[in-house]
Amino acid sequence: MHKVKGVVVRAKNGPATVETILVPDPGPGEALVDVLTCGVCQTDLHYKVGGVGDDFPYLLGHEATGVVSAVGEGVTEVSVGDHVILNWRAVCGECRACRRGEPWYCFDTHNATQKMTLEDGTDLEPALGIGAFTEKTLVAAGQCTPIDTTLQDEQYAAVGLLGCGVTAGIGAAINTGAVKRGESVAVIGCGGVGTAAVAGAALAGATTIIAVDVDDEKLGTAQRLGATHVINSRSADPVAGIRELTGGHGADLVIDAVGVADTFMQAFRARDLAGRMVLVGVPDPGTVAEIPLDEVFSHGGSIKSAWYGDTLPSRDFPMLVDQYVLGRLDLDAFVSERIALDDVDAAFETMKSGKVLRSVVELDR
């Protein structure tokens, strides 16, 4: 049993506090990971405010890198000493999605069987089955994706963001949206996920990439990461603007990275005929958008939601790390600030300001 510090939220809307937690040695199929870095993601805030469930107390954090310090019986995926990115889609290989060759949709993903606890023995529910705002965490071995490339210490903060939001955005463009070279792409909403979708479109070879947001600073960041045009939808109609920038037709692919009714309808109507639309912004429960069925039929194309950007970590993480090392994917641009465990609760407030893409905890701070 290992006694370490971790960030816990005990009740809905309660503070995220640093507490002593107990982490067991790994059992069969499990791995113990010494955490190096962990990004502060919107999903962690959703846990904090009760938007994910009420299984408090939660151990927050999931966008992480670390070093495997011990493995349990039967583990072959990783070895002690491996540098890894943690993921929440450890595929089972046996469910109906896996059996039909679509493991990125796995319906029975693995997590550690044993529970990490508070000192009094209270079970902790780890965010997305990871719980990485801590010095050590216990996960299923399949939640560890080895990083073969030797990185500099300061690069792990950026690479860890592949564990969730950045990959969700890149995957929405490359995997779900299937961007082809020379296509036009519009992204509505340029927070961390939307900006990553812009970067993904650029990586895939899109030649017209239109970023839409209400914040000029976010639009500037999107331009640095590959947007060829920007539209501030506070002062301009985004549908008309996207059509004007695409010869009057609309974009081949439009990505809604916000997930409210207005942006959903903007994305639906800003597509070219037979164009594609991807919803990657997570809607609040009960959100409704009304679409006349005759428009669905007459417009053609497809409407898809992106679960984690249809990402398969074992396939996609190594490729994206390689693109980063080669200088084709600027993951460093997503790291707005580097903080300590004690700063996580304050980082949630900073997140609400919209002035950061990611605050990243570095465990040696």
Rank of each mutant, 00 (worst) to 15 (best):
Y156C: 00
S235Q: 10
A11N: 02
R89E: 15
P26R: 03
V278R: 00
G189Q: 12
L60C: 10
A306T: 07
L341G: 01
I209P: 06
V296C: 10
E119V: 13
G61T: 10
V139W: 00
T167K: 11
P146W: 08
A90G: 05
T207F: 13
Q155I: 01
E337L: 01
G259A: 10
V254F: 12
I170V: 14
I147C: 01
A140R: 03
E73W: 06
C190D: 04
V325E: 06
I130Y: 02
I209F: 09
V361W: 10
L128A: 12
T221R: 14
H110N: 11
A270E: 09
G131E: 00
V33P: 02
P318H: 03
E183D: 14
T167P: 02
T134W: 09
V8S: 00
L161M: 12
A289R: 06
D272Q: 14
S336D: 00
A16W: 01
T246V: 11
G165N: 09
A172V: 02
T145S: 12
V166G: 13
V4T: 06
K3T: 09
G61Y: 14
P285R: 08
R100V: 00
A31F: 04
G39A: 11
V288D: 02
K304F: 13
P24Q: 05
E94Q: 15
T117R: 13
V35K: 04
L60D: 10
V78D: 12
A251H: 04
A168L: 11
S69K: 15
A251W: 01
A306Q: 07
D148I: 13
A90P: 11
T122Y: 07
I339L: 08
G81Y: 13
A112Q: 04
V278E: 12
P285G: 07
N111A: 14
R100K: 13
D272M: 15
L124H: 03
W88N: 04
D148L: 14
C98Y: 01
R271N: 01
L331V: 01
T113M: 02
L45S: 05
E337I: 00
V23M: 02
V68E: 01
K5R: 11
V68M: 13
A289N: 03
A112H: 02
V18W: 05
N87T: 08
